[in-house]
Nucleic acid binder design. Sequence first.
DNA 1: CTATTCTTTTGACATAAATCAAAAACCAAT
DNA 2: ATTGGTTTTTGATTTATGTCAAAAGAATAG
Lengths: 186, 186
Amino acid sequence: MDLSDFLLSLVSFEPNELEDILSCFEKKKIKKNTMLIAEGEVCRELYFVESGMGRSYYLKEDGKEITQWFFGSGKFMTSVDSFFQGRPSLYYLEILEEAVVYSINKTKIDELFSKYHKMEHLGRQLSIEMLTKVVNKINAIQFQTAKERYEYMLEEFPNISQRVSLGHIASYLGMTQETLSRIRRR
Amino acid sequence: MDLSDFLLSLVSFEPNELEDILSCFEKKKIKKNTMLIAEGEVCRELYFVESGMGRSYYLKEDGKEITQWFFGSGKFMTSVDSFFQGRPSLYYLEILEEAVVYSINKTKIDELFSKYHKMEHLGRQLSIEMLTKVVNKINAIQFQTAKERYEYMLEEFPNISQRVSLGHIASYLGMTQETLSRIRRR
DNA sequence: CTATTCTTTTGACATAAATCAAAAACCAAT
DNA sequence: ATTGGTTTTTGATTTATGTCAAAAGAATAG
């Protein structure tokens, strides 16, 4: 998914506005297993994933990685709380699959937000979309059996199972990889 | 928490702007156990809770109520997906404790969003704040023991336990009320 | 192509929390 | 106060999922 098309699909920017906005982003190719941000750092970039796959995760006290979210093509990826509030990130951001991203830093995007009312509108729309997805995940995870949770995941992230490891998916779903492996057998 | 103070604490509206915005809200007193919206209806109002307590919940297939979120003083309450996307609500909204709210409908708030850039900014800020809270809940719930989840709840909603029933809290936390009762014993 | 490392599967067993059932405590209305 | 209804607590039992351990299977690098 191309950034320009994505933006236009949500808000009708004028050609010159669009150009101005796009010029604030920097296109980058990122290798597999790259860490974009580590826990404790302040996340200063927002990434639009054109292709590839990323995830956010954190470490439990016992050192286990817990996947928080997956970011595929056409999604904005960042450590939300850190990026927007300037606080140290609670999460790691990692690229799982060679990716092409458009990145923009906090200063620039804040300029865009104050320069263009439409941009602020876009930001609100995207936040709300993400909010409903996260709420959706809670419902799936909180009161469903391990099997139902897996089914939820297939809806939210179709064919993710061919792209990321069992362990990453299991921790996203709040179960052990052994359990997930047993569910898949059926 | 007063709506006017609340708005000013986040965005510096001019007196006339503020007045215009406040005039779009309607102050209402709402009785305990009032249902603001039922599942399946489209939620057309957004409520700012000045005092009292509300919750959102849904019914599982077996008919059990699952509390989704609590809304105390100084919070905006609505069925987010329904209100913003105009879809049938997945949740019920209920007032648990006699409340004073300021309500505004979708049409009016959209007018405010397009009229005032600052308003759109406010909307984005509030969405992001809610998003980080919801993410926070996932972390608390997904990988912690029942006892740790209860402790998370006391941080997010201090003294909620004196205000709402055990069953409502238990379902919010993803456990049975028996389990919660046993945790509290200690 | 082979060796090394990482990932997934399988098995046996342990455990936190759910379920079912009933008693106790608390409230509200007559 | 007495009744009826709801909410909370307690006990006994079941169950889904976790833990630990090891084997099987893939992937990656030399």
